[in-house]
Every structure is written in C-alpha cells, then in structure tokens.
Amino acid sequence: MGRTTFHTDPVEALAGVADGDTVLVGGFGMAGMPVRLVDALIDVGAKGLTIVSNNAGNGETGLAALLKAGRVAKVICSFPRQADSYVFDGLYRAGEVELEVVPQGNLAERMRAAGAGIGAFYTPTGVGTLLAEGKEQRTIDGRDHVLEMPIRGDWALIAAQAADPMGNLVYRKTARNFGPVMATAAATTVVEVRETVDLGAMDPEAVVTPGIFVDRVVTS
C-alpha cells in the first residue's frame, strides 16, 4: 500500500498540530465540512491558529466552536458574514480575531498555486478595489492585474465520500468544493471519509484526489 495512514480516532489523526499553525479547512457552508476533524482540533488544544476556509463558522458548532474556544488568531476567508455567524462577528468586533477577506476565486487559486509550486500569479480579480491595495500590479495584454501570493497550509482538514487503501479519494456532489485544492496545498492532509473501499474497488478513472496528496484518513 501507499504511505497514507488510516485512523479511527480523529484526535490521533491530528497528532502534531502546534500553536500558530495554518490550517486549511474544507467545506462550503456545511457541505464538505470535516465536522469530526474540526471538533477534534478543539480537543487537540493548539492555539493561535490561522484558519483558511470559505466561511467563518455557523451557529456554535464546528469552526464557530473552535473560534469560541479562543484557538483562532486569524481567519482567511471569502465570506465571514452570515445569518448565524455571530460567534465570529463578536470576536472580530472585539478585536480578538484578525480577518483577511479574499475573493473566493483568489482563495481557491492561491491554494492551487501553493499545491502546484507556483510562486505567485497575476489576476484581474480585485483590480481597483480595497483588496488590491498595497499589492504589486502589472498590465498584461492591456488589462490590469494584481499579484497574488500562494496560501500554504501546515495542515488541510477536508471531508470526502470514500477512500481506498492508497488514499485515493472520491467526493459527493457539491461537497467536493475546496477539498481537492486544499489536499494539494498543505504539508499534511487529513481526510475524514464516510466509507473506505477495498483495493481495486475504486474506478481509477473516477479518482478525484490521488493518494499522493493524502497523508491521513479518518474512517467512521
């Protein structure tokens, strides 16, 4: 088999998460949110984390619970403000958590760049806006572009539908979202899956994330 390891205990699968680490957290709303891993991250106890995720938590579970527990120093996301994002809202207004708002396409592409070994990239997204202030600009083919830097994680925590013993992953419907991108962009990628399948049972043509990007799998 490959070097991907399999765990039933999500806390064990997060062994090594340290204070100040950058953690990429998959999901768009609750679809694709690695709920067990985020809960386990609270139990692990690391503080001063930078969390990179599309949203900044809903209600009082998952990322909101991690924020409420005081473990997060900075959130990098595209859409923090939601009807039930009151935990984040309160911490942000109290100055207890830093926020970097990133256009959703830049968020995905900056992680893709990190995973693909691209040092930075120019994009027209954000030109002439507050989010381009202080960034290098360049005109390419007559169009203004902004230089955007990669976002690399110490950890990626994502959810997938199924893993095989090689760590190959398939996802389900729109729960795929950031998972395949984040899996490439972190030093250690941890995936919670709903099911594991036997060697040879996953169609190689259907694999979305090849096992090279998957370090640890948490099974149900």
Binding site: F79, Q104, V127
Partner: peptide, 12 residues
C-alpha cells in the same frame, strides 16, 4: 464586516 464571496471574480 466585509464579505466578498465570488463577486469580484464574477465581475471581472
């Protein structure tokens, strides 16, 4: 609290 989502990507 600013929230941009995909608006800037769509706009350009």
């Amino acid at each position: 609290i600013p929230a941009v989502g995909g608006a800037m990507d769509l706009a350009i």
